[in-house]
Simulated assay, not measured.
Amino acid sequence: MHQQSPRAIIVMGVSGAGKTSVAQLLAQRLGCAFVEGDRLHPDANVEKMAKGIPLTDEDRWPWLDLVGGELAAARARGESVVVTCSALKKVYRERLREASGGSLNFVFLAGAVDVLEKRMGERKGHFMPVSLLHSQLATLESPVNEEGVVTVDIDASLETIVDGAMTALVEQWR
């Protein structure tokens, strides 16, 4: 029987889309590692965001390199991994694809502004204020129709969102 090569998946989208919840359940279903990309942010980035200051490309490059390093390290160990990362711009996704050292799938969590605002308002203990949602939406370059990207609407239960992601990913892996 042929051995499945390790999978590298980024669950992406703006703040409030549910990246962490979706990625954790997706990793559990796939039986692989989960990495919370926000935990890789340098302290200076977290401080900026907590103050409501949007990150610049210069702020994001070192963080994206750390996320890419996690992908490459898992692949080097022969392990599959699901990582959360906003990956808002195409150039960020290209950098992550390059860093991963192999094929990379993205699960894009898409949702209406009112759904995102409601979710962000309900979160407890997260450094990202609702005020930064609109700067993230302005920065977002839709990945729809990019290679390796599946899009899932977030206006559903967690189970339904992950079911949709799994179905679309399996289809791509064929």
Rank of each mutant, 00 (worst) to 15 (best):
E58R: 12
S100V: 02
R60S: 04
V22D: 02
K48I: 02
R174Q: 14
V162D: 03
M1R: 11
H41G: 04
G69T: 14
Q28K: 15
A17R: 01
A8T: 07
S21E: 02
Q24I: 07
S15D: 01
A168H: 10
E58N: 08
V144S: 10
F108M: 06
M1F: 10
Q28S: 15
W173C: 04
R93P: 09
A110Q: 13
G16M: 01
A110I: 00
T160P: 00
D163L: 09
V46H: 02
T151W: 04
G37Q: 06
E79Q: 13
R95G: 08
E36G: 06
A72M: 06
V35L: 13
L96E: 06
S21N: 00
R174Y: 02
D163V: 07
K118A: 14
L71Q: 05
G164W: 06
D43G: 01
R174G: 12
V149A: 12
G18Q: 00
V11H: 06
L158A: 10
I154T: 14
G37T: 06
I161H: 01
V144E: 15
L40K: 07
L71F: 09
W61A: 02
L140M: 15
G16I: 00
A99P: 07
M12S: 10
W173K: 02
V81F: 04
G148L: 08
L132S: 08
A23Y: 09
P62G: 09
T84I: 11
R97K: 13
S5W: 04
S5D: 13
F108V: 01
T20L: 03
G37F: 05
G164D: 15
V152P: 08
R39I: 02
E70V: 09
E146A: 12
G102E: 00
P54Y: 12
D57E: 13
V46Q: 03
L88G: 13
V22W: 03
T151P: 03
R119M: 05
E36Q: 12
R75A: 13
T167C: 13
T160C: 03
P42E: 06
Q28H: 15
R119I: 05
A156M: 03
I9K: 00
K124A: 11
S157G: 15
D163E: 15
V46G: 01
L64Q: 04
G121D: 09
G52K: 08
A23M: 10
Q3H: 15
E94I: 04
R39L: 14
Q136G: 08
H134I: 00
W63F: 06
F106P: 06
D114V: 07
G13C: 07
R123I: 09
S131K: 15
A87V: 09
S15W: 00
K90E: 11
A156V: 00
R29P: 09
Q24L: 07
A110C: 05
G69Y: 13
E141Q: 15
V162P: 05
H126D: 10
A156E: 05
Q24F: 01
V162I: 09
A50G: 10
V130I: 15
E147S: 13
D114S: 13
D163Q: 13
I161T: 10
G111H: 01
M12L: 12
A17E: 01
E117C: 11
V35E: 08
